[in-house]
Design a protein around this nucleic acid. Sequence first.
RNA 1: CGGGGCGUAGCGCAGCCUGGUAGCGCACCUGUUUUGGGAACAGGGGGUCGCAAGUUCGAAUCUUGCCGCCCCGACCA
Length: 440
Amino acid sequence: MRLSNYFLPLLKETPSEATIASHRYMLRAGMVKQDSAGIYIWLPLGFKVLKKIEKIVREEQNKAGAVEILMPTIQSSSHWKETGRYDAYGPEMLRIKDRGDRELLYGPTNEDMITDMFRTYVKSYKDLPQTLYHIQWKFRDERRPRFGVMRGREFLMKDAYSFDVDLESARLSYNKQFVAYLNTYDRLGLKAIPLRADTGPIGGDLSHEFLILAETGESKVYCHSDLLDMEAPGSVMEKDLQEVVDSRTSFYARADDMHDQSKFDEIPKDKQVVARGIEVGHIFQFGDKYSKPMNANVQGANGRVSPVMMGSYGVGVSRLVGGIIEASHDENGIVWPKSVTPFGVGIINLKVGDDDVDRVCEELYEIFEKSGIEPLYDDKNDRGGQKFARMDLIGLPYQIIVGPRGLKDGIVEVKVRISGEKKELSFEDAVNYIISEYEV
RNA sequence: CGGGGCGUAGCGCAGCCUGGUAGCGCACCUGUUUUGGGAACAGGGGGUCGCAAGUUCGAAUCUUGCCGCCCCGACCA
């Protein structure tokens, strides 16, 4: 993409409402524009990142054996009345009436709808287990939306729903998602901690929330530091993932609402971590909570009919955009992990109109376009300082700086955003270096 | 939902107390000189002062009502 053709409305000054880094930088870097409280327009740069995160979430869901569907944003109240949640959910649910005075709602979650769908098709244990997911916009009429996309009213969520014949099988479905979550966050460049969680209004028996550490996190976290040092499990072939799950859950890790100081004190002092975190995922195992009232029953091998055992698994995709920035920024702007960066490399032309500089930039641009690295070429006729500040703000992992001064000696400069390190390299070395950095 | 506050150009703000032709910085446009870490100078465009009613010769300014938004706390991807 050439910057001269792009829509990138940057702000030099910080809008007054933004108090945390991710919100400030998302506004300043032209990623989002607020339209009303907790509702945002996704501008090109923000949308690109959102889509990249969505893609990684999708790939990891597919790897875990989940199957993608798409449910509507607008739901009928009927399923919610069947489960009793129409009354229980409260004012967070946006209720709408259509022209026929029918009660509709903008979905805050989809257990009720998917349970209804599932029961019409599946009657036998032979069609189980099954996990379905979708990535869809949700609306929750939060009392106080804030922190930009971190707590919007409208937000993009991946929600998966598992269906099993019994609790033993349901445990395996839960474990698959647990492992998929660890891998997902790892690919997003995040260190996520699974915490034993309260089951909240969705309800159920077993639940973990996943937090990423950030100073501005809304939750206080107490955990064992070894948990933070663990690598993502990657693709695990064994059928029963219990060992992998146990290897994480055996460490003490609680948010303050579930905190037990005496157990925390048992951890060696130098391994105790007290930090703040942002919730970026939550998984639940809730058995027959919805299947029972909705008569979503399946017949087992023994011929007995019983409610299908369910779980649900949420990842806040739009929240992750903010979460990643919270976890990865400095005083100059965002520092994107390579996996979600909106563009792979920024090309800075320090003297637009200079034949040699223009030519080298164009060659670089073409090479990176072809190699799929997606360059953002700053071909605007601005001063160097402005270009440097701009590129730092939007946070691409690598910058190639091309100017007449370096070109005279046959070199271009490569800047690594995260460290600030600058390398003076030949054209070929610069290209090879960037390309090799993106090879898996 | 309790507490606090704000609405004046795209963004950041002053003006309001004490009513009298709407201002500053950034951004934007034109020109000149510049150009390797957010350039300088000169000129210029952009506003129903959140909306409505009222008081007044006259309202951004005073009064009332409404709408919107933010911040701090208690609750949630």
